[in-house]
Design a protein around this nucleic acid. Structure first.
Lengths: 276, 276
DNA sequence: TTGCTCCTCACGTCACGTGAGGTGGC
DNA sequence: TTGCTCCTCACGTCACGTGAGGTGGC
């Protein structure tokens, strides 16, 4: 019979850990003194302790080790548990490596001075939503402001007439691939409460269609300030997507979080992406 | 001004997380209602929130993110932090991969039926210690019991005469490489309290030398039962060492935790090892 | 008035480590 | 008697998630 300190020295396990294993019932001392609470261990408990350490070393939690020690589990089951562990660790390694990739991408970005200061690109999941939308090809960029004004005016009028309330900020979808200054294929949209199902209509000669817009993973960033600076936000997202090994799988969305009439506008840019 | 639910929906961050960031001062709502505690956020806080998310995504803790947001840190410093992170993640990847290696080794062991049931090999660090020792070449294995008896008898007598107490169980070091049944180069030893420094002596014609024994990393397992079964323990350690990519760097030790006169003996085998 | 949203505790997570404060054994 | 060992709480770790129990706003 050994006092906890001796057993600790021989086993190489701290006293605190031994007390912890006692407390959770994983390794009880062979005897505990009733009067002073002293724990007494036996050398014959070393194999059990070593089994605990060996299983812990294979990545099992103490909670998982308990049953393995109690019931005598068939090697077949042990094998199953190890296979599971294996898959779990492989998963974690993959995650760590993707994290490493992100850190390295950021370092390269800083070092190559293509550092898009001020823009932080994040990945977010956007739900599928119901929207009211209208679409037109705007001939030149100079006409964007008036055309967008007209489109959103019609949309809000339509939403009001339908007895609905927008369920979020209005946004645009740009269907032309790449940056263009002419013939900009623009879809303007207002999100509606889920489940609402109004009919199509024409307002002020503008055709409005309610529809469902697919959600998914988005690479997104927020631009704070006048719209003339927005190309920088697009560039920042583009750089992030390339550096982090994603692929653009749809047209970008521009979400007008704070409109131009309420001070400095705040605009979010989203690109639907997939891991490449 | 947005209620927490709206801000949560727009940012894609849970309400609970937003409350947590408020609590630790990472992102305070622009306004908190005094009467009911409602938090109100602004769209203009989205860039800050995104910065938090982006840094978190690079593996920084919330505690590390705080200063980065408050003080405007130079890109030079950011670079330093990223380099540190990078090294840290590489370290973790290496650890996970070694864990994966251990799990795979165990799986192979089970599948190839060379499964040494009952032996759990663990890695432990043994301290350098002061010992009293005597060494001789035992001609045949049949004489081991009597020779060991004689050696330990002399050692204990010596320790007693020196006015010392053994500081741990007695053990043997086997200097012959591989398993042999003849001419076994055996060193018997008794650990002494650290700092004690007795003189060499001869007891019953047996020469006893006090010395220092180097510690280090050991692959160890415990054998429970008669000494005839001990070769299995050696085999188990050998298999473990090979499977886990270690290398034997010294002679094995056999530690007599429970001697043969106290019921079933309990014996620990240790091999000094290094990562190969 | 009824849902819906929001609030504040308090506790749990995983495997211990770190004091604080006190007692038993040689 | 004096160190040394041992004991039992209680709290901290990291970034939230999960109730419990209660209140404000349309």
């Amino acid at each position: 019979m050994l006092k906890i300190g001796e057993f600790s020295r021989i086993s190489g396990v701290t006293i605190i850990t031994l007390r912890h294993y006692d407390q959770i019932g994983l390794l009880k001392p062979v005897h505990t003194d009733d009067s002073n609470g002293y724990r007494y261990y036996s050398m014959r408990q070393l194999p059990r302790l070593n089994r605990i350490l060996a299983l812990k070393d294979l990545g099992f939690t103490l909670e998982q080790i308990g049953p393995v020690l109690r019931e005598n589990i068939a090697p077949e089951q042990i094998r199953g548990m190890l296979r599971l562990k294996q898959a779990e660790i492989e998963q974690r390694v993959a995650e760590e490596q993707s994290l490493l990739g992100r850190v390295e991408a950021r370092l390269r970005q800083i070092e190559s001075e293509e550092y898009m200061a001020g823009y932080d690109v994040v990945l977010k999941t956007v739900d599928t939503m119901t929207i009211a939308t209208t679409r037109e090809v705007v001939p030149t960029i100079g006409e964007m402001a008036t055309r967008c004004g007209a489109m959103f005016g019609a949309l809000f009028q339509y939403v009001g007439q339908s007895g609905l309330k927008p369920s979020g900020p209005p946004f645009a979808i740009y269907h032309c691939p790449g940056y263009t200054e002419t013939d900009i294929d623009t879809e303007s949209a207002v999100p509606l409460p889920n489940g609402s199902n109004p009919a199509p209509a024409t307002v002020d000669g503008i055709a409005i269609t309610p529809q469902s817009l697919e959600g998914g993973e988005m690479a997104a960033t927020v631009h704070h300030g006048p719209y003339t600076g927005i190309p920088n936000a697009y560039a920042a997202i583009g750089a992030w997507i390339e550096a982090n090994g994603y692929r653009i799988v749809g047209p970008p969305r521009e979400i007008y979080l704070v409109g131009p009439h309420e001070g400095e506008p705040v605009t979010e840019i989203q690109y639907p992406v997939q891991k490449a």
